[in-house]
Amino acid sequence: MTPPRPLATLTALLVPVVLVNLWIYARFTVDDAFITWRYGLNLIHHGIWAYNPDGFDLTQAYTNPVFAALSILPAALGLDMVLAFKLVSLTVLIVLAMLLLREAGDKLRMGFVLALLMAVPATVAH
């Protein structure tokens, strides 16, 4: 009988932690995201790239212009903004995990590192 590998055991223990964190923190959205998404909504609904659709205050309130620009697509398609960006985030995490696992010499160790990364609530929430 082969003794269990410590890294495999730790990885197996982390899986429930990752799933619980995904369940809890995937429902959390940072408030700054709503500020950013409002630019895409205002562009589609009012034709102006601003936080307020009246055009009086042209101050830029977003902190991430890439996501502000990406928010145009869900707004134009009438999709739920939060769900659309949760799916984008999940896709990015999956692609990152696949790339890291492909390049890793020790797949089990990289799986453990990825599980550890996903077990941190700040990673999942943001």
Rank of each mutant, 00 (worst) to 15 (best):
P74C: 03
A26V: 04
I24D: 03
N42H: 10
D54K: 13
L43R: 07
T63V: 10
W49L: 06
L22E: 05
P53R: 09
F56P: 00
I44P: 04
I48D: 06
G47P: 13
A26Q: 11
L101R: 00
V92Q: 08
V124E: 04
L90S: 12
Y39D: 04
S71M: 04
A119V: 07
L77Q: 06
F67Y: 11
M118F: 09
A119K: 05
G78L: 02
I48A: 05
F67G: 01
A115C: 15
L73P: 08
L101K: 00
N42C: 05
I24L: 13
V113I: 14
V66A: 10
N52Q: 14
A69N: 08
A33T: 12
A69E: 09
K86D: 03
A61C: 05
A84H: 04
L93S: 12
D106N: 14
G78K: 04
R102L: 05
F67H: 09
V88Q: 05
L79S: 12
Y25D: 09
P74Q: 00
D31I: 11
N21F: 06
F85Q: 04
T91R: 02
I72G: 02
I48Q: 03
I94S: 05
P65A: 11
L101Q: 03
M81P: 08
K107R: 15
F56Y: 14
L87G: 03
S89F: 13
Q60A: 11
P53F: 02
P74G: 04
V88W: 03
N64E: 12
L116W: 11
V120H: 10
R38W: 10
W23H: 10
Q60D: 14
V92Y: 11
L117D: 08
D80H: 13
P74S: 03
G40L: 08
I72Y: 07
K86F: 02
M81T: 12
G40P: 05
L87E: 01
F85N: 02
D80K: 07
V120I: 15
L101E: 01
L77H: 04
L90A: 15
A122G: 00
S71K: 01
K86C: 01
T91S: 12
V124A: 07
L99G: 01
N64I: 10
I94T: 05
G55P: 06
D31M: 08
L117G: 03
S89R: 12
P74R: 01
A97I: 01
H46G: 00
L116D: 05
G111I: 04
F34M: 15
I94H: 02
T63C: 01
H45M: 07
G55Y: 08
T59F: 07
L93P: 00
K86Y: 02
T36M: 06
A26N: 14
E103R: 13
H45K: 14
A97P: 03
D80M: 07
Y25K: 06
A97G: 06
Q60Y: 08
L77E: 04
L114C: 10
G40F: 07
A33Y: 15
D31Y: 12
L108W: 12
F34Q: 10
T36P: 02
V113T: 10
V30Y: 15
Y39A: 02
A84E: 00
L58T: 13
Q60H: 05
Y51P: 06
Y62D: 14
L87H: 01
I44V: 15
G40T: 09
